[in-house]
Amino acid sequence: MKEKKSIGTFYIPMIFFLVTVLFPFAWTFLTSLKKKNEMFAQEFRFLPAAPTLDSYRELFEKTDFFSNMWNSLVVSFATVLIAGIVSFMAGYALSRYRFRMRNALMYFFLLLYLVPSTLLLIPLYTIFNKMGILHTQLCLIVAYSTYSIPYSVWLTTGFINQVPFELEEAAALDGCSLAQRMFRIVLPLLRPALVASCSFIFITSWNEYTYANMFTNKASRTVTVALSNFMSQYNIRWDLITAGGIVVVIPVVIMFVFVQKDLIAGLTAGGVKG
């Protein structure tokens, strides 16, 4: 695909986006290199006068940041597995079948989530406590799955709607079973879409704070909680927060460098009718 890229519609907006996206982060990074008294100095300076990596050293040597990141990774991956599969199945049903109560179900998935999580905290705490999984990673995985399933059901339904049904009809005539159609025909066509909705689930879990804050202890604490705990009652550790903020983003971005190709792999040219 050879396309002409003009300055006005390509390069200028592109640079605009890169600058807006990166500026807050670059600023955070510069701040993380500064010494405390320089951060609040009267005289304003963009670049740190004496850059120091002390905050990163302290982050890795004196805090549990790595194990917090590991917890977040485990929880997020497990959630992707559970919520991804479950919502692909549900999305397929909602897209391909018409039945009574379908609309009601679609609304049900959405409306449940209009009740803010603040109000769910205490009952959920009690439920998890009774189930005996409070303060473990499992309770976060359960909580995040319920939290992301409705959203990803909607996403996958939307995506499957865009895959022409005729393909499946042809396969059904050839004697393909439901499972075969789902996994042999729809799934490959949906690769980019599934990658997108799995990234959605992953990142939602990775970023979640309210539940993680309540349902974890020192051993199972996730990275968002660890980060906000650098703010204690009378002390905000700007150095650790900014350094941690940079570190937290790196693995996800690296992961995405590999995944993003699949977003584009897309449909093969043949066999798709317009």
Binding site: L121, I122, Y125, T126, N129, K130, L134, N213, M214, N217, K218, V225, S228, N229, M231, S232, Q233
Partner: peptide, 21 residues
């Protein structure tokens, strides 16, 4: 000794009290 971060202390205390934990 279990140090609970200040940010979540009160919320956790109330939730724990409500569920007898």
């Amino acid at each position: 000794l279990e140090a609970v971060p200040w940010n979540s202390y009160h919320d956790m205390l109330i939730a724990a009290a409500a569920s007898g934990d």
